[in-house]
Design a protein around this nucleic acid. Structure first.
Lengths: 230, 230
DNA sequence: ATATGTGAACAGGTTCACAGCG
DNA sequence: CGCTGTGAACCTGTTCACATAT
């Protein structure tokens, strides 16, 4: 319950900051490829699509990796952020559910960028078990626990149909996995020691529709002042 | 710059609330299918994976749709949330980029649930132009502006390679589209009147890796108290 | 001289706890 | 009496503006 202050440095990096570190890392990688060795918070922030104050505050949580009057050394910062995100080791990822989406994920190149490796594909459908997708053999879901243990899988991507997701999730958690990326449109229940991130296409669309509608409302009703509604 | 207070009701629904409305809607749909007519904030919150105080506060932003001592009428609430999200009309969506991911999205059923209709598929590759995917003919990207206008597309899903994304985005914005769902791993620059939502698989994985690593750190270094690190 | 790192002010979101309505 | 709706307290995250280091 108490958040012991580390003797060396506060390891409690704000969640909002963690969510932006990958953005900075990508921007830095782009700069490095263009041969840029040093960058100011202003320029890096622009490349990552945030403002510079936020960037500096974010980086300050990792440590003091810039030089006043100069900026940040690109290579060095890439390393520090990679290390903080845990990308200096690589993580074995299993994809469960090899339908259209699972297949797309397996083939998605940038997905397996630095730090991640698709170590297994699993599915319940005997029709696809045995197929080779992205150079990997599709294994039957019965093998789930075995595969997770044998291949050292620590992150599972769920791309199953909605009805199957919770059951698969339970098995995955039971097998000791504590990080799940869920594409199925359901709210998974898991112990709180397990981290679930959710990607939900229809939710994103609905949020867009809300804003789109608001714009339409403004155009027609705004200037004239709305009259009805109850 | 000023946020004129509406005479009838405050239309300024917090962004965080908007992002959860689709969750409530899905939970309510599930309840309706199971024939449940009335639900308490406690139960609905549980089904949506949030706490009940948050749910009540969220719903209070839409209006007073519950009955004290009783709960919420499921059908009625479904309608109110649908209306608020703009799902009572349906939105024409175009998917640009019909690679693995675009194909998966086109075929994804739940994607086209209530309120959305895939109205066009576009790609630059002459190899796939003319193909039929999910019952739709793939059109060449040259037709982008024409298709958007002719089919009344108001939401565009970008599933192009990273290098192409900004250029396509510019054309889409120029054609008058103000809502974009971006799957390409780039920061798009758009006028601020345009709403962009981003889905980025590798960012999600990196966030999971961060937490996964922290757990590992704790197990080994935590109880023994870390010693090195600078 | 210049750009970082950060305290302080601010804004937005969450949780608490209870008044108020059915 | 039960459950909603909401002010108030709290917490997290963002922005400002400048002291500080090179």
């Amino acid at each position: 319950m108490s958040r012991r202050p580390s003797p060396t440095r506060d390891r409690g990096i704000p969640e909002a900051t963690v969510a932006r570190l990958p953005l900075y890392l990508r921007a830095l990688t782009g700069l490095a490829e263009r041969g840029i060795a040093t960058v100011s918070s202003e320029d890096l922030a622009a490349a990552a699509g945030v403002n510079s104050a936020k960037l500096r505050k974010d980086l300050s949580h990792l440590g003091s990796y810039g030089t006043r009057g100069v900026g940040y050394e690109v290579e060095y910062l890439v390393y520090q952020i990679s290390r903080e995100l845990g990308l200096t080791q690589d993580w074995a990822v299993a994809i469960v559910g090899v339908g259209n989406l699972g297949r797309a994920l397996a083939n998605y190149g940038g997905f397996v960028s630095r730090g991640f490796r698709v170590a297994a594909l699993l599915d319940a459908d005997p029709e696809v078990v045995g197929d080779t997708i992205a150079g990997l053999n599709v294994v039957h879901i019965d093998e789930l626990e075995t595969v997770i243990k044998r291949r050292g899988v620590s992150i599972v991507v769920l791309a199953t149909p909605a009805q199957a997701a919770q059951a698969v999730c339970d098995r995955v958690v039971n097998a000791g996995v504590t990080s799940i990326l869920n594409f199925a449109p359901v709210v998974l229940s898991v112990p709180e020691s397990v981290e679930v991130r959710k990607v939900d296409l229809s939710i994103e669309l609905q949020i867009l529709a809300f804003h789109e509608q608001r714009k339409a409302d403004r155009e027609s009703g705004g200037p004239l002042m709305a009259v009805e509604n109850q």
